[in-house]
Design a protein around this nucleic acid. Structure first.
Lengths: 136, 136
DNA sequence: TCGGACTTGCAACGGGGTTGCAGAATATTT
DNA sequence: AAATATTCTGCAACCCCGTTGCAAGTCCGA
């Protein structure tokens, strides 16, 4: 519990029950979550708008990152210490077509790509869809 | 012009002016288009719903494919002959943070990735964000 | 050119996401 | 411990995305 407050403090955020609950939801469920997921879990306690704003704040502060998905945006915890200034991710995301879960494969880096002359890459986002070990 | 009708015919679609216009828009503008882009271009001639349905039909028939984007879905022409049965893409998408355009890099294939035991990959989607040659 | 099959437009709806504002909660200072 | 400044929350309202049902219109093959 103190862990949550500590994380918020590091990122210069006030500790509120909503932020603690959203953060702990990300920590407990390990997979990437959509706003809808969070609303399903916490919607009775907090307004939808508050959850949207909490996500936006966490994004800006480097606590979570976006996960692209063919059916909408999701969010997942940043593993290492991202911050407001530096928000770098190069790991792979895997979405299971059976259970629908999307997960970060933290250990797998996106392979380097040789782009044609003139392209200046900044961010990479690789989504692999298929069947995960659990559903195999 | 006959080219358009031909393409539609190959995919077993009736030729209608809306489908011809949507298809030729994709051919003229080379980049990936959102529904909003098409509505901006053709919205005075056709209902939004019709454009949505045209996109959906083109998707199913293998004329266009989805392009993931951090701010919404886009669509781009399938280069080779995709069909209703086989709809395979393994090229890279590049989104320019300056001009906002998203393009297929048809010649660049997504590098192979060695996934851990138990994962069965089916589809790959790599979006690279950065600055494109035009905006350089 | 006729008829069945497909396509379109309209109306309506649900969900996703944002903004403005007033009131509540938090952190800070004394 | 109380007062203050700052930040956060809830509510209402709004716009955009995408879908569905239905009636009218269009296409294409016989």
């Amino acid at each position: 519990m103190d862990q949550l407050r500590e994380t918020l403090k590091v990122h210069h955020l006030r500790t509120t029950t909503c932020r603690e609950d959203v953060l702990s939801t990300f920590i407990n469920r390990k997979n990437a979550l959509s706003h809808g997921d969070l609303e399903g879990e916490l919607g009775e306690n907090y307004d939808r708008v508050t959850i949207y704003r909490t996500l936006k704040t966490f994004l800006e502060k480097g606590i979570i990152h976006k996960v692209l998905d063919d059916e909408g945006l999701r969010y997942a915890l940043c593993s290492h210490s991202c911050s407001e200034e530096k928000h770098q991710h190069d790991h792979i995301h895997f979405k299971c077509s059976s259970c629908g879960e999307t997960n970060c494969l933290e250990n797998l880096h996106i392979p380097a790509v040789q782009l044609p002359e003139g392209y200046h890459p900044e961010h990479f986002n690789l989504l692999i869809q298929g069947v995960c070990p659990k559903c195999n």
